[in-house]
Write a protein that binds this DNA or RNA. Sequence first.
DNA 1: TATGAATGAGACTTCATTCAT
DNA 2: TATGAATGAAGTCTCATTCAT
Lengths: 201, 201, 201, 201
Amino acid sequence: MARADLIERRREEILGAAYRLFGEKGYHETNIADIAAVLEIGHGTFYRYYQNKLDIFIHVIDLVIEKIGGVVASEEPRTTETLDEYRAQLQRIGERLFDLFVSDRHLAQILFYEAPGIDRALDEKIERALDVFGSFTEQYLVNGKKKGFLRGDLNAPVTALAVNAMIFEGVRRVQRATHPKKAKDEWIRAITRLMLEGLAA
Amino acid sequence: MARADLIERRREEILGAAYRLFGEKGYHETNIADIAAVLEIGHGTFYRYYQNKLDIFIHVIDLVIEKIGGVVASEEPRTTETLDEYRAQLQRIGERLFDLFVSDRHLAQILFYEAPGIDRALDEKIERALDVFGSFTEQYLVNGKKKGFLRGDLNAPVTALAVNAMIFEGVRRVQRATHPKKAKDEWIRAITRLMLEGLAA
Amino acid sequence: MARADLIERRREEILGAAYRLFGEKGYHETNIADIAAVLEIGHGTFYRYYQNKLDIFIHVIDLVIEKIGGVVASEEPRTTETLDEYRAQLQRIGERLFDLFVSDRHLAQILFYEAPGIDRALDEKIERALDVFGSFTEQYLVNGKKKGFLRGDLNAPVTALAVNAMIFEGVRRVQRATHPKKAKDEWIRAITRLMLEGLAA
Amino acid sequence: MARADLIERRREEILGAAYRLFGEKGYHETNIADIAAVLEIGHGTFYRYYQNKLDIFIHVIDLVIEKIGGVVASEEPRTTETLDEYRAQLQRIGERLFDLFVSDRHLAQILFYEAPGIDRALDEKIERALDVFGSFTEQYLVNGKKKGFLRGDLNAPVTALAVNAMIFEGVRRVQRATHPKKAKDEWIRAITRLMLEGLAA
DNA sequence: TATGAATGAGACTTCATTCAT
DNA sequence: TATGAATGAAGTCTCATTCAT
């Protein structure tokens, strides 16, 4: 029992170290020996906890998806009744997501730069996660259509993915910005206005 | 001069082969020997035309950027006078861009999956290209503001990047779709409506 | 004493598991962890009963030698008085040996395929065991010479080893045969006729 | 053309070095780096000529089989007309085979000690080679039956394998003997007498 | 006595790059 | 200019053995 806890802790330590190193140096530049070294363990020990380098990276990606998913799923789509409520909700989620990426710079690095192209199965996994995130956004849109504060003829699934693409580009940009706070506000405002009012005069 | 032409042709042959292989197998899975093999040249010869593996990949990325840039810059922003003209223009560019990615599957694979994370300097180069693409979109927005058919208070630079993010997510999705034609129409429609009219009822 | 018995029993359980695994998977493909796993003991426990991997393999070879030795020494050479008695004796030993190898497929696998080349000292041990088996056969030949039913000028030590070589090749072949029973009869008959009557017309 | 020759020579140099090292140190104790070191080449170079360690060992075994096969097939079975001619023939082949193994100590070491148990497919290959060697001996026996100087009722295929087993045990023993010459004569004599006249008085 | 977490030497193999021909 | 043989750094992974609990 204590034994199992220690093992679980060690697994998480390794995961944490890998998360950091993959974020800092990149997947291909990070050796198993590097991960072992920062933890001051033998690199054979690593292989007691994870099958191989791809295996730990997959777990790192799971962690990334989980972190983002926590924010994405942090609100209840169906409770929103008016456009203003939706706008407020959008802003809250946006704030949390931008804060998440700004506070943890590895997140964006891993998701947007390291993960793609490592492994086709992993690309698929990320794609499915994006689909899930899309389905959350879609629920908001569907709710809005039902409640009547969003256009009844909007293509919810595609629009949801388009909206999410803007948001992810936003977090990517904000996280790299010289003044993240200012950038965050600009992006949240630009996206919500574009979404709700459109660009037409 | 004929000499120089031959060299240039050979350079392009190598670039073409590399483009194809990087798109099919990925950067790390493609060897210099593979590239040489498809051209039936010695792999030592490769090094007479490109400095190293990263060098050729950079040139592949240049090609990718150039292909996209050709579409992005295919219209003149300032000639548009009305919202309807802008809508038509958007649709034309969208069509061309989606067609480009659908007709050449390596383009999306390289841009979205292979390029990220290879090299930080290369990531920067792509970022700058995205900035350039953003500045094109921005010109349309600025023109629309000036002509009065777009909202005067919209944040043109940020909104332009957001719009482009939707478009790139669209081409990525459409290129992977089972029915690209249908997907393309849906995405173009969803994006233009979202942009111009917004989602609010 | 009960303590000592338990220890001895555990030693034999480990030996049995090792015997089976070395026979099935081979020496190099069998891990200490594999052996411990089939016994559902910790693999550290293994080292309380055997010094190391080679040590247990040496004990496995001892077991192999013992099993064969049991058959080889199962008859009394000096009681045989006539050629017919010797022929009958030969056939009895042959039957037992062939049955032993057919009933226990690991025996041949370990003796003929796994043991050679593991360790020079172990090769020597097996060589000495073969010498001992040779000396048994030699006793029959010497007895036959003394009793006058075998040629007086035959080179007993060398001929004994030659005879044993035939027998071991026989058991190796029979154990691998599609129809072991038929093969066994053929080999026993071929060897006894070759031995006693020779091939000349 | 000279190019191809050089490559072939290098392949054979590597094969020779591997043959020697596998014979001296054993398969598992020999590294690719060892082989490269004795040839003073980079160990990456090894992999230009052989796929991997097992691959070169298979080629070593091919060489072993070829060397033995050269002796085994050095006489024409059907030309023998009398028992004395057969005896002489047997002795010639025996001499050559014993000389081969005595002059090249690696041969026996590799065949009898290193090869078994490395790889099941390789074991099969050796088994098939032994079958081929058996079929040669069988031809002598069949010829003898036809010509009437060997017993008409002998089981040629099985007896051939039994005879070969004696011969291989002989070469193995002689090659290890303190006085190989004396041992060789004893073995050749013991085997031929056993074969042709049997042991009965 | 039993355990199994930790270790790290060591082996194989790949491949970008060089350079003599 | 073209070639491809040679190189060796570098990296992944295994597993016998130890030892603290």
